[in-house]
Design a protein around this nucleic acid. Structure first.
Length: 358
DNA sequence: GAACCGTGGCA
DNA sequence: TTGCCAAGGTT
């Protein structure tokens, strides 16, 4: 990108967006957009929080379920914590769900309207620089500079910025600001993200189809696919743990609510050991005839691999959740894997599979 | 600035 | 099978 070409490139991008914008449940249609209709700030905020570090494909159904169950921010603010955490289960980064509720309650307490500026939005829980700018631009038409991973990639390529991330961030924000128009800033932001998601992709960018390829310095140098440069990531360690699945005579399940802070904070789970890099000591939650399952659960978190040994037992006692009050869908994925393994074992006990040799 | 925090799809 | 990656925020 040469200095002075920003307006021309921005216009080309918006023209492309008008013909190629992706259809999504939280967006308004092309006709409404052309008529100046803005999407519901509640929908924009909810979608942006769900989309943090998460793919559009994964978010779609969650967004539909949330808005069907809680049509307004006031409805969400009035929800039970456990219901929101259960509805978020499987989407990951559970601090987002806890902050989502805090934010909804703060907005409801302040009258039910979201702040209309990036500065005001930024003060709310779970809303950082990106989300504040995105909601301000998309829902309130503020020419905020929206910089997410897509924008970083597109801008790094347009200007052929070879400084590795995250050191390049300030320069990328500066360039993104030069590209942001005063008119239709929300569409511009979404156009940048659609471009990054469909054409200016991390691997094998489709430069031939790019509406701004004529302005792209990286394409001219043949290094588009190499940008933005990133330093190599450290190897993930493996941690080990134990999980205990106890059933009572009525089929009830022993569950615990995890602490608010830390990994899987606020989510349901099975009792068990800490997860450490050394072999854990047995720590059954109650006395019973525990059977160790032959397979283990493997799961990878952001910064470590986990291998869980699973134990099951029939037992009696206090604290069992009645089976009809428990939905496996309310578990975080690693705990759902534990549940699935325990179920497979129960199935096998009821109807042993045919032996298959060895 | 760096560590922490999930998950599923894909090459 | 493994590593990389996706519309980041908090501490």
């Amino acid at each position: 990108m040469r200095d002075g070409s920003e307006a021309e490139a921005g216009a080309a991008l918006l023209f492309w967006y008008d013909g190629h914008a992706r259809v999504m449940p939280w967006r308004v249609g092309p006709a409404e957009r052309a008529a100046g209709v803005r999407p519901d700030p509640y929908h924009v905020w909810l979608s942006e929080v769900m989309l943090q570090q998460t793919t559009v494909a994964a978010v779609r159904d969650y967004f539909r379920r949330f808005t069907a169950r809680w049509p307004s921010v006031a409805d969400l603010a009035a929800a039970e914590d456990g219901d929101v955490m259960a509805e978020w289960a499987g989407l990951g980064y559970y601090a987002r769900a806890r902050n989502l509720l805090k934010c909804a309650r703060a907005v409801a307490a302040a009258g039910g309207q979201f702040p209309a500026t990036a500065e005001g939005l930024r003060a709310l829980p779970g809303i950082g620089p990106y989300t504040a700018a995105a909601v301000a631009a998309i829902a309130f038409d503020e020419p905020a500079v929206v910089v997410d991973g897509n924008v970083e990639r597109v801008v790094a390529r347009l200007w052929a910025i070879e400084t590795p991330m995250p050191a390049a961030k300030p320069e990328l924000v500066d360039k993104a600001g030069r590209l942001t128009p005063q008119l239709r800033p929300g569409d511009h932001a979404q156009a940048m993200m659609d471009l990054g998601a469909t054409i200016c992709t991390p691997r094998n960018p489709a430069c031939a189809l790019c509406p701004v390829n004529a302005f792209c310095a990286a394409k001219a140098q043949g290094i588009a696919a190499e940008l933005p440069r990133k330093s190599p990531k450290p190897e993930k360690p493996t941690r080990f743990g134990l999980a205990y699945v106890a059933f009572d005579a009525a089929g009830g399940v022993l569950l615990e609510r995890r602490p608010e802070k830390g990994l899987l904070g606020g989510m349901l789970g099975f009792p068990g050991s800490d997860w450490a890099e050394t072999a854990p000591a047995p720590c059954p939650p109650l006395a019973a005839d525990w059977t160790q399952l032959s397979h283990e659960v493997r799961h990878t978190f952001t910064h470590f691999h986990l291998r869980l040994r699973v134990f099951v037992a029939q037992a009696e006692g206090e604290g069992f959740t009645p089976r009809q009050d428990f939905s496996p869908a309310a578990l975080p994925t690693v705990m759902r894997k534990v549940w699935d393994l325990a179920q497979a074992r129960a199935q096998a006990g009821a109807a042993p599979p045919h032996p298959r040799g060895i």
